[in-house]
Lab assay of single mutants.
Amino acid sequence: VSEWTEYKTADGKTYYYNNRTWESTWEKPQ
Rank of each mutant, 00 (worst) to 15 (best):
K28E: 09
D11M: 03
E6S: 03
N19D: 11
T21G: 03
R20W: 15
S24I: 15
T21P: 02
V1P: 14
N19F: 07
T21R: 05
A10Y: 04
V1S: 12
K13R: 14
G12I: 01
W22H: 15
Q30T: 14
K13I: 09
T14M: 07
P29N: 06
W22V: 07
T25I: 10
E6D: 02
N18E: 04
E23L: 02
R20D: 14
W26Q: 10
N18T: 00
V1E: 14
G12H: 01
W22A: 15
E27L: 07
N19W: 10
T14W: 04
T25A: 13
T14Q: 04
K28P: 14
Y15D: 05
Y17R: 06
E27Y: 07
S2V: 08
W26V: 13
Y15P: 03
E3L: 05
K13C: 14
Q30H: 13
T21K: 00
Y16E: 03
Y16D: 03
Y16V: 00
E27V: 10
A10N: 09
K13V: 10
E6F: 01
P29Y: 04
A10E: 09
E3M: 05
E23K: 03
T25E: 05
A10I: 12
Y7N: 10
N19M: 08
Y15K: 08
N18A: 00
Y7T: 06
E3P: 07
Y15L: 09
S24P: 05
K8E: 10
Q30S: 14
K8H: 12
Y17S: 02
S2H: 11
Y15W: 11
N19K: 09
Y15T: 00
V1G: 14
P29T: 04
E3V: 06
Y15S: 01
T21F: 06
E3S: 03
S24K: 14
T9E: 04
N19A: 08
T9W: 02
S24E: 12
D11K: 03
Y17H: 07
E6G: 01
D11E: 12
Y15R: 05
N18F: 03
S24Y: 15
Q30L: 13
Y7S: 10
P29A: 06
N19P: 09
W4Q: 01
T21M: 03
K8R: 12
Q30W: 11
E6M: 04
E27H: 08
A10V: 11
S2P: 13
P29M: 04
G12F: 00
T25D: 04
N18Q: 02
N19G: 07
A10Q: 11
W22L: 15
T14S: 10
T9G: 11
Y15M: 12
T5V: 15
W4I: 02
A10P: 13
Y17M: 09
E3Q: 06
Y16M: 00
E27A: 05
T21D: 08
R20V: 15
S2M: 11
W4S: 01
N18H: 11
E3C: 11
K28D: 12
T5P: 02
Y16I: 00
W26E: 11
T25Q: 12
N19I: 11
E27G: 03
N19R: 04
R20E: 15
S24A: 10
W26A: 12
T25P: 06
T14L: 10
E27S: 04
T21S: 07
N19H: 10
E3W: 05
E3T: 04
K8T: 13
K28L: 12
E23D: 05
N18K: 01
S2Y: 07
Q30R: 06
K28R: 08
S2I: 12
R20T: 14
T5H: 10
T5D: 08
Q30I: 14
E23I: 04
N18R: 01
D11F: 05
V1H: 14
G12P: 00
Y16L: 01
Y7P: 00
T9D: 11
G12Y: 00
T5S: 10
K8A: 06
P29R: 01
T25V: 14
E23M: 02
D11T: 10
T21W: 08
P29W: 06
E23H: 01
E3Y: 06
Y15Q: 04
K28H: 09
Y15N: 02
E6Y: 02
K8D: 03
E6H: 00
T9V: 01
T25Y: 13
S2W: 13
K13Y: 11
W22G: 15
Y7A: 09
T14H: 06
T5Y: 11
T5C: 15
T9Y: 08
W4Y: 04
D11Y: 05
P29S: 05
S24R: 07
S2T: 09
G12M: 00
Y17K: 09
D11S: 07
R20H: 14
Y7W: 12
T25F: 12
A10S: 10
T25N: 06
S24M: 14
K13T: 07
T14E: 05
T25K: 10
Y16G: 00
T9S: 08
T14R: 02
T25L: 11
Q30A: 14
W26H: 12
Y15F: 13
E6R: 01
Y7D: 02
D11N: 08
N18S: 02
E27R: 01
S24F: 14
E23V: 06
E6W: 04
E23Q: 04
P29F: 05
W26L: 09
K13G: 06
T21Q: 02
W26G: 08
Y17Q: 07
A10M: 08
W22I: 08
Y7L: 13
N19V: 11
Y7G: 07
V1I: 11
D11H: 04
T9Q: 04
K28A: 10
G12A: 00
R20Q: 15
W22Y: 15
T5I: 15
Y17E: 08
T5Q: 12
A10F: 06
W22N: 15
T14D: 06
E27I: 09
D11P: 01
T14G: 02
K8I: 13
